[in-house]
């Protein structure tokens, strides 16, 4: 993502400091992480000090300050998914990717995160890859899903 793209997002929000989180969310959405150069640009244009941006970008889990893998994997470990065996789904995902929640593998192929409820408990246990929801999975089926992404 280049400076122009960032400026476009900032201008879309009218360059208002109060919309800092919206701006960051949009950069995160397009770029999948928040590079330092992007944050510096936002700081400059919105006139919000870096210390504040740093605080906000580390406060919310929606933001990432490190590059993410090409495939973003979310395993729901909320109460319903937990009782329906989320931990074994997570094990299958960990086996396939070789990484723990919160990490990205060396080839930048996968990033794995756990989430606490996605709001569709009836589909549990849930595995979400790149925004696509896979529900009512067995661990073996979870492995199959993961294989489709390499």
């Amino acid at each position: 993502m280049d400076i122009k793209g960032i400026d476009k997002i900032i201008e879309k929000h009218g360059g208002v400091a109060g919309l800092l989180i919206q701006v960051l969310l949009e950069i995160q959405g397009e770029n999948h992480w928040l590079p330092k150069e992007a944050l510096e640009r936002v700081s400059e244009r919105l006139r919000v000090p870096m210390s504040r941006i740093q605080h906000i970008a580390t406060f919310y889990k929606a933001f990432s300050l490190v590059p993410k893998g090409r495939h973003e994997v979310h395993v729901c470990t909320g109460t319903s998914c937990h009782v329906r065996g989320a931990s074994r789904i997570l094990d299958a995902v960990k086996d396939h990717t070789g990484i723990e929640p919160g990490e990205t593998d060396v080839d930048s192929k996968f990033s794995v995160e756990t989430v606490n409820c996605l709001g569709c408990c009836a589909l549990g246990p849930l595995l979400v890859v790149n925004g696509k929801t896979h529900g009512r999975l067995s661990p073996a089926e979870a492995s199959e899903v993961m294989k489709k992404y390499g």
Partner: peptide, 8 residues
Amino acid sequence: NAVGFVDR
């Protein structure tokens, strides 16, 4: 603003 908080 040389120093700030991070994380939560």
